[in-house]
Design a protein around this nucleic acid. Structure first.
Lengths: 160, 160
DNA sequence: TATTGTTATACTCTATAACTATA
DNA sequence: TATAGTTATAGAGTATAACAATA
């Protein structure tokens, strides 16, 4: 996925700390392992930022993408999220059911929907963006400003 | 989780590439998003490294932990993996069912098991470690040696 | 023939809670 | 009373496959 495809059920308490007395061998020298641990930390921050709002990472991504790409089709949304069409549909159903997004028929293509945020969806998205950004920066606060830029650059370089 | 807790079902085809024509807003400036994309790349490499072996990240972690901590209890293993006791049990059942690990009664505590790799488990673990390391390095090859060290250091610093 | 959306189904992983046996 | 292991159950998330409508 491009595509943050999350398996994430909402707030989780787990931390990424090492268990004392355990020999981790060379696990921590692996990028896959180190990335996973860091991601758990970032997930925990996301969960706190969206507490009580039933927003998961893919839902958040969908809101941001819909805001920036009004009229996008369900298939394209699924492609961005890296999920199958059926998954994009259930996600869209959830957004529509909450009154956050709506489907509009496309004049040019009778098969596809155009997806749009509702007023409530735009309001929630704006609020979420502030909160998620705030908690993201709180995680990043463990690094110096220079280190933050370096980390983002290296992560981007790692990803094709 | 500490704890690489994977939701990962084996080889997955998804890539982490951007979809052309889509406005991603400032998603890529978020550490949570960037970490997730990088992790997807690392997962894909892990899947290739373990192709056909039915090894998932938590299973791999369990093998490495059992190798380095012979006699560890199921509860401790669950704590390392960041999963509930029931999850540690199912994972252990899987390893035992494949003949990779065995439970031995502890002389000092009648409640707990001591977990040990079998000879086959040790052989598979040794093989997996080489392969996973190889693919991990292949991902890291997109970075210079200096950048690799920097990335690991920054990821470690990000994680409490 | 290919594509969009839809529905149904199954599978994996995980969590919770209740139970037992030991401590 | 607390802990290790076990079992059963439920839930979220995802994938696959088949179908109808449209291109």
């Amino acid at each position: 996925m491009s595509r943050p495809r999350a398996t994430h059920r909402g707030p989780r308490a787990s931390s990424a700390a090492r268990v004392p007395g355990i020999d981790y061998a060379n696990l921590h020298a692996h990028f896959g392992y180190a990335l996973r641990r860091a991601q758990i930390t970032a997930f925990a921050a996301f969960a706190r930022a969206t507490e009580g709002l039933a927003i998961t990472p893919p839902r958040y991504t969908a809101l941001v993408i819909l805001e920036a790409n009004p009229g996008i089709s369900q298939s394209a949304l699924g492609e961005v999220l890296g999920t199958a069409r059926s998954g994009a549909m259930m996600l869209t159903n959830w957004l529509v059911g909450r009154g956050l997004a709506e489907r509009r028929h496309r004049p040019d293509d009778g098969r596809a929907w155009g997806l749009y945020l509702t007023r409530g969806g735009r309001a929630l998205t704006a609020r979420l963006k502030r909160r998620v950004y705030e908690y993201d920066q709180r995680v990043a606060a463990r690094l110096t400003p220079a280190e933050r830029g370096t980390l983002l650059r290296l992560l981007e370089k790692l990803t094709p």
